[in-house]
Design a protein around this nucleic acid. Structure first.
Length: 881
RNA sequence: GCCCGGAUGGCGAAAUCGGCAGACGCAGCGGACUUAAAAUCCGCAGCCUCGUAAGAGGCGUGGGGGUUCAAGUCCCCCUCCGGGCACCA
């Protein structure tokens, strides 16, 4: 059971006798003392200037939203980053390890509504509380460069960047369909829509609205963002794949289909035109009209198999058609209504395909055939051209649709087999057949050509004849950043009655976010209700102008914050270019995988914009990215609704910060999900207690300084061997796979070895110089994981220097080597005995020893030895018949 | 549907290059210390069978097959769990 008294009662006992070797490990007392001392040294974790002789290392954890409470996911994230930062300092690097606050955003407005606290006040109070928690955990942040994105000295640079983008045409305004979350009462970017719902309100369906919005032209960089993914070798493959899919490049072609000129259709054909299920043959005299439908396809090679065109319901041409045709108008309205209802029912994935024939036909430019034009709900307006050619035989979706409405299905490609196309009857069972390793049939001059070659030749043919072109399309859309909210960066734009859209001049920055805003639940931008804010003079003509009242998406703040960390108090520029050039790119970025596309793709975009503005030299912001696993409990992610939340404060009060953070590293490898078990924290705490008691017990003998050499007793050799094996293991892990769980296990093994050797240590078999090396190294090894205890022991064993700047112990390969090793002996692959030999024994010696082993000898007696497999230093396997 | 992870004792996990499966820790059991408890320390501990015992043998890394002297690890098929994408033409 919980024993809160333990932490209160214990300090007194420890204070009375702090150095007693029987003293109980008392984290509350040790940690309180060191916190006070660290607080008195504001430069303790300060990065050195670019002139530093040490090589630079920039380690960064994703900045938190200041909700007011750290959760275990934060603790884990920061424990990983902090261990690395401390290790890198000890490895002699100049480490930049900053922290800040992603402080704009909707929760502050919600809190304002609920508690009647102004967003600014609420946010700053939360920041103070969380900063206190971070310091309590003992994280090594350089607070001199702290940033708070909701303060003008930060967000003015958002505005400054926005103006630079506007000047270059990278920021633009247009009316468009946008995602609208009714809960947030604001617009969302595509990246913030999850399964048709809001990313913050999983049960709230996103609506489509037409609004004037500011966009950033991220699509200008689509190809570069895609190409450079292959260079990000320090990123998890998973994240790169997610970004690749998000950018969604596809190669294909645009083709124009002319709508048939109704005037030119001969009288006798009119009756055959109902239904729209059949393709009408090419016919002399039928002409294309003025109106064209442009489709995008990746499979131009199947164009002879097209049997209809399909338009998105929101396609502009559909509107033109419905104006003249009330019956069609009703059908399309019905289509949209069905769509809306299906989404409301929540089953977005299971929406059925529906469509309506428009009564029009369009001419296939390759063969003059006339294809019925339909409207279908499975066509997306904002991908490609919002229109497709439907090839039921060779596309799954078109096949479903054609089956449902009885449209023609025409086979125009067949598997490549003996070189000759197979019989078409045999292929029908394969439909829809989409394999591109195939040959064309029934495709005019292109018949018998392979698909890939046909794609090239047909696109070239289309371009030659002026009705099409090879094209690349991306799924990535421009980034809509306007939000109809109060708590964000004001967009620095003005609307002048005579000059139109006018940017705020740099000299007028920042456009301050006013404080006196009443937060209400009514829609529209809150800033629009403050006349003093809205009213302004036009900087160009001096006339009356109106301020933009939308604010920026908060992902703008986090797209470049890590640059500001290098020079956060700069009031003339977002940062100093040469300082950034020194620190960038970030050597190691650590955070949750949930930001794989949103934050991390925006950041890559922003860095390229800054590069093109001449502000930075790096193409990528982040060299290596690490995504840690979630903290779960009882098989589910910690959340209030599941009632399985463990508060860091409670853990720290009960077991101390060292135990809490060390457990978060010990319970699982950092990239895997971690199952929180409180008993495990208690176990780590017990272990730290053993370390503490052991070190303090022998601290007196460790004050004799350092020395080495001389003949070592077997006991000393054994202890040093274990020590150097541990140093090797942990050093290699920091450089490689970061399995801190096994690093901590290795330290536990070392301590187990040490306590088991106490009789030898006390019996004079281990000289003080050896004991000194052991205690020093043990403390250094512990420092990245349990800094409070490490600082305490460092002082107890008489060291004067700053532990964080003391060199990481070097491992000595000769000391780490085992002199004797155990070799398992197998017979037919089954373990039968183990022999002990000198580590450098040659093969014959090993073989002879194995065969001479009494157990082995007995087992192979009367049997024929067929083969002996000997793996040096590993194993010997005797194969008998 | 497609793409990634993952599945190992009662539990969290380890085994880094195909070579002693279960390191380290939790929970458990036995013992020491104590008037007693807490704390601490020592020992046992994958499962099954045989044996009073020391010990011996068998089975065992989600399931089935394969490669190999040897497979948690490699190959093929399947099940379950977690995550991402999902009418992207």
């Amino acid at each position: 059971m919980a024993t809160p008294e333990q932490t209160e009662a214990a300090p007194a006992a420890a204070n009375s006798e702090p150095a007693s070797h029987e003293a109980r490990y008392n984290p509350a007392e040790i940690e309180a003392r060191w916190q006070e001392r660290w607080a008195a040294q504001p430069d303790l974790y300060a990065a050195e200037p670019a002139s530093s002789a040490r090589p630079k290392y920039y380690v960064l954890e994703m900045l938190p939203y200041p909700s007011g409470q750290l959760h275990m996911g934060h603790v884990r994230n920061y424990a990983i980053g902090d261990a690395l930062a401390r290790y890198m300092w000890m490895q002699g690097h100049n480490v930049l390890h900053p922290m800040g606050w992603d402080a704009f955003g909707l929760p502050a407005e919600n809190a304002a509504l609920k508690n009647n606290t102004p967003p600014r006040e609420w946010t700053l109070a939360n920041i103070a509380a969380m900063k206190r928690q971070m310091n309590r955990i003992g994280l090594s942040y350089d607070w001199r460069n702290e940033i708070t994105t909701c303060l003008p000295d930060y967000y003015r640079w958002n505005q400054w960047f926005f103006l630079r983008m506007f000047e270059r045409g990278l920021a633009y305004r247009r009316k468009s369909k946008v995602n609208w979350c009714p809960q947030c009462a604001t617009v969302l970017a595509n990246e913030q829509v999850v399964n048709g719902c809001c990313w913050r309100h999983e049960d709230t369906l996103v609506e489509q609205r037409d609004l004037e919005q500011w966009f950033l032209r991220i699509t200008n960089y689509a190809q570069e963002l895609l190409d450079d993914l292959s260079k990000l070798e320090g990123w998890p493959e998973k994240v790169r794949t997610m970004q690749r899919n998000w950018i969604g490049r596809s190669e294909g072609a645009r083709i124009d289909f002319e709508l048939e000129d109704l005037e030119s259709i001969p009288e006798e054909e009119r009756s055959a035109r109902r239904g729209g299920t059949a393709v009408l043959p090419a016919r002399e005299g039928v002409k294309g009209g003025e109106v064209k439908i442009t489709v995008f396809t990746t499979r131009i090679d199947t164009i002879y198999g097209a049997t209809s065109l399909q338009l998105a319901p929101e396609h502009p041409l559909v509107k033109q058609m419905t104006v003249a045709d009330p019956a069609l108008d009703a059908s399309v309205a019905d289509l949209l209504e069905q769509q809306r209802r299906a989404r409301e029912a929540g089953d977005v994935g299971a929406i059925q395909k529906h469509g309506v024939f428009t009564g029009h036909y369009a001419i296939n430019p390759f063969n003059g055939e006339r294809l019925p034009v339909w409207v279908a709900n499975y066509i997306l307006l904002d991908y490609g051209t919002g229109a497709i050619m439907s090839v039921p035989a060779h596309d799954e979706r078109d096949y479903d649709f054609a089956q449902k409405y009885g449209l023609e299905i025409r086979v125009v490609i067949l598997p490549r087999r003996t070189g000759e196309p197979a019989d078409s009857g045999e292929t029908e069972s394969l439909l829809p057949f989409t394999d591109e390793d195939s040959l064309l049939i029934n495709s005019g001059d292109f018949s018998t050509v392979g698909c890939h070659e046909a794609q090239r030749r047909m696109a070239a043919y289309a371009e030659e004849h002026g009705f099409g072109k090879a094209t690349v399309t991306y799924r990535l859309k421009d980034w809509g950043i306007s939000r109809q909210r109060y708590w964000g960066t004001p967009i620095p734009m003005l609307y002048c009655e005579s000059c139109g859209i006018v940017p705020v001049p740099d000299s007028d920055l920042p456009v301050l976010l006013p404080d006196n805003v009443e937060i209400t639940q009514q829609g529209g931008s809150p800033l629009g209700r403050i006349p003093e804010f809205v009213g302004a003079a036009c900087p160009q003509c001096g006339g009356k102008a109106r301020r933009e009242t939308d604010t920026m998406d908060t992902f703008v703040d986090s797209s470049w914050y890590f640059y500001r960390y290098t020079d956060a108090r700069n009031d003339r520029a977002p940062f100093d270019a040469s300082t950034v050039a020194y620190w960038f790119p970030i050597d190691q970025y650590i955070g949750g995988v949930e930001h794989a596309i949103l934050h991390l793709i925006y950041s890559r975009f922003w860095t390229r914009v800054m590069r093109d503005l001449g502000l930075v030299r790096n193409d990528e912001p982040v060299e290596r990215l690490f995504t840690q696993g979630m903290v779960i409990r009882n098989g589910a992610k910690m959340s209030k609704s599941k009632g399985n939340v463990v508060s860091p404060d409670e853990m720290i009060a009960r077991y101390g910060a060292d135990s809490t953070r060390m457990y978060s590293l010990f319970a699982a490898p950092p990239d895997r999900d971690l199952d929180w078990q409180e008993d495990g924290v208690a176990g780590v705490s017990r272990f730290l207690g053993r370390v503490c008691r052991f070190a303090i017990k022998y601290a007196g003998r460790a004050k004799n300084g350092r020395a080495a050499g001389g003949d070592l007793s077997p006991a000393s050799q054994a202890l040093l061997r274990k020590l150097h094996q541990t140093i090797r293991k942990i050093t290699e892990d920091f450089a490689g796979r970061w399995h801190f769980n096994t690093c901590i296990a290795a330290i536990m093994e070392l301590v187990n070895t040490l306590t088991a050797a106490e009789p030898a240590i006390n019996g004079g078999e281990v000289p003080d110089v050896v004991l000194t090396e052991i205690l020093r190294s043990l403390t250094l090894l512990l420092a990245p994981f349990a800094p409070y205890l490490a600082f305490e022991l460092w002082e107890q064993i008489g060291e004067q220097d700053n532990l964080l700047r003391s060199p990481w112990p070097e491992f000595d390969e000769a000391l780490a080597r085992e002199e004797q090793i155990e070799i398992p002996v197998q017979i037919n692959g089954k373990l039968r005995s183990v022999i002990r030999l000198d580590a450098d024994a040659d093969e014959d010696t090993v073989r002879d020893a194995a065969l001479a082993d009494p157990r082995i000898a007995a087992l192979i007696e009367c049997k024929e030895v067929a083969r002996i497999i000997l793996v040096p230093r590993k194993l010997i396997n005797i194969v008998v018949k």
